[in-house]
Simulated assay, not measured.
Amino acid sequence: MAPGFARSVSLPLSPSRKIASFHVRSVSLPCQTHPIIFNLEEQIQTVQSWATNPERSSAWIVAGLVQIDLLHTALEDFLQLSQTQETLQHSAPVDQVPDDLLQLVDFYGSFLSNIGTLKQCNSEVQSALRRQDGVQMASSLRSQLHAEKEMAQLASGLRRMTKCKHLSLSPDAKELEIVKEAICTTAFASVAVFMEVGALSAAASSTKMNSATKSLKRFAINTSLKKRGTDVERDVVSLERLEELEENIRDIEFSSERLFKSLINSRISLLNITSSL
Score class of each variant (00 low, 15 high):
residue 55 E to G: 15
residue 236 V to D: 13
residue 101 L to M: 12
residue 277 L to V: 10
residue 169 L to G: 04
residue 242 L to V: 12
residue 29 L to N: 08
residue 117 T to K: 02
residue 102 L to H: 07
residue 223 T to I: 09
residue 211 S to I: 02
residue 180 K to M: 12
residue 234 R to T: 15
residue 174 K to T: 07
residue 142 R to P: 10
residue 31 C to A: 06
residue 65 L to R: 01
residue 140 S to M: 03
residue 222 N to I: 06
residue 263 L to G: 01
residue 202 A to Y: 01
residue 4 G to H: 09
residue 125 V to R: 02
residue 160 R to I: 13
residue 91 S to A: 12
residue 159 R to S: 15
residue 44 I to Y: 01
residue 207 T to D: 05
residue 56 R to Y: 15
residue 107 F to A: 13
residue 240 E to A: 14
residue 25 R to Y: 09
residue 146 H to E: 06
residue 260 F to K: 10
residue 215 S to T: 11
residue 95 D to T: 06
residue 68 I to N: 05
residue 233 E to C: 04
residue 33 T to I: 06
residue 229 G to E: 14
residue 262 S to F: 03
residue 246 E to R: 01
residue 13 L to G: 09
residue 242 L to F: 14
residue 109 G to A: 14
residue 243 E to Q: 15
residue 204 A to K: 02
residue 83 Q to V: 09
residue 194 F to I: 07
residue 215 S to V: 03
residue 18 K to P: 12
residue 124 E to H: 00
residue 98 P to W: 00
residue 230 T to V: 11
residue 14 S to M: 10
residue 243 E to W: 14
residue 89 Q to E: 06
residue 156 S to D: 10
residue 176 L to Q: 04
residue 187 A to Q: 10
residue 2 A to W: 07
residue 45 Q to H: 09
residue 78 F to H: 08
residue 57 S to N: 03
residue 275 S to C: 10
residue 43 Q to P: 07
residue 194 F to C: 05
